[in-house]
Design a protein around this nucleic acid. Structure first.
Length: 382
DNA sequence: CCATCCCGCCAATAA
DNA sequence: TTATTGGCGGGATGG
């Protein structure tokens, strides 16, 4: 094990002026999009972390980030070590409703903040509604002080700071409160157990929130915009649809907001951020061979679906045509690595995939509507 | 400037 | 113990 390394130093410059770096291509948001387009096909039921990492060309660590937030929204579920189960977008409505219920119950009916209408109301400010923990996975309690943690011998404390939980709390903020535009650092202060008089704590929290916001944005559950009056950037909850309100048809799917344009390259990876130091041992991971066809096209992002519904439901329309090779994806481990790595793996989708992806989104959203349709679905504020 | 947030060290946890 | 998971925050990037 360890490093089988193809220290052929595949990537790493060596003469090509290629992309200097470009941070955007490595964002969590893009990674999430790629992750989704890669696994949101029919036939996928389980996802191997190693597989995901190598196919997406990123380090393991990144996969954990993505997977954690996706799980907190119900799209995935941990099945076992190195393995997650794909639940699909259809599981989201329920997950959100549960979150809403939980949030509402936790804090004693926080009603609303009818504090007049401060001209150009801000976002948070005071209001101490700590959406603290929620799950106490400990059963054999054996007398546990009802007191709030505090000196929690490094126990649940770690979990309380998990990305997943933070994500849920962040979402609850939108679902259970009347405020619909929240700035990250408002959210950070608000979600901080409360205290949070430390700037450092907040800073860290905000960093995490940025991460979360990025993946949620990539799925269009929230959107970043600037506060009308205040230049302060904030996020708005879009929910399961891109923008409800009035039966306007317009864009049932992401209007034209893509914020993060999906680069021309569907895979992240390749090229690291050069270290402070010139050289670079660079043999950490087998990285991805620079295959990437780099077709110079597909920048029209959300094309697809020309007004009509080309696909016909089904959980998710079959990616009409060819393999995907996701057939044997149930017993192996990380055998694939080396071999497949050398060959081509990644981008066989490209624009085609993007089209499918968006079509799928459209269908998925429609089906969610059916589920929570007339009922008292999630609808915040007014 | 400063809002964003990637990278990856290294500590908890699980096998 | 080793392998997985994943906090955490330095500091680069992009506006």
């Amino acid at each position: 094990m360890a490093l089988p390394e193809f220290h052929a130093a595949a990537a790493m410059d060596s003469g090509y002026k290629d992309v200097p770096y470009c941070r955007k291509q490595k964002s969590l948001g893009l990674l999430c999009t790629n992750f989704l387009s890669l696994y949101n096909r029919d036939g996928v039921e389980t996802i191997g972390l190693d597989d995901a990492a190598s196919r997406l060309g990123v380090e393991r660590r990144r996969i954990y980030d993505i997977v954690n937030v996706l799980e907190s929204i119900g799209i995935l579920a941990r099945k076992a070590k190195n393995r997650y189960t794909w639940k699909g977008f259809g599981a989201i409505p329920k997950a959100l409703e549960d979150l809403k219920k939980e949030g509402l119950k936790e804090n004693g009916s926080a009603v609303e903040t009818s504090c007049s209408e401060k001209t150009s109301d801000d976002e948070e400010d005071e209001m101490c509604s700590d959406f603290n923990n929620l799950s106490q996975t400990d059963k054999s309690d054996s007398n546990s002080v009802p007191k709030c943690s505090l000196s929690n011998r490094s126990g649940e404390n770690r979990k309380e700071k998990s990305l997943g939980l933070l994500t849920q709390n962040f979402v609850k903020l939108f679902l259970c409160t009347d405020m619909d535009m929240i700035s990250l650092d408002a959210a950070a202060k608000l979600l901080l157990g409360d205290g949070s008089r430390n700037s450092m704590n907040t800073r860290t929290k905000v960093r995490r929130l940025y991460d979360i916001a990025n993946v949620l944005s990539s799925m269009n559950f929230i959107e970043k915009l600037h506060h009308p009056e205040t230049r302060k950037p904030a996020f708005r909850w879009l929910g399961l649809n891109g923008k409800p309100d009035k039966g306007n048809v317009e864009s049932l799917v992401l209007s034209e907001s893509r914020k993060r344009v999906f680069g021309t390259d569907l895979t992240n990876a390749t090229v690291k951020r050069l270290k402070v130091d010139g050289d670079a041992p660079s043999f950490l991971k087998p990285h991805i061979p620079i295959q990437i066809k780099q077709e110079t096209l597909d920048n029209e992002v959300e094309r697809a679906k020309t007004g009509g519904k080309s696909y016909q439901f089904g959980p998710f329309a079959p990616a009409n045509e060819h393999e995907v090779g996701a057939s044997q994806d149930e017993k192996e481990k990380q055998v694939i690595d080396r071999e497949s790595l050398a060959s081509t793996y990644l981008p066989q989708y490209h624009s085609q995939a993007l089209k499918d992806l968006f079509s799928h989104y459209a269908e998925a959203w429609k089906s969610w509507y059916s589920e929570v349709d007339g009922k008292n679905h999630i609808q915040i504020i007014s």
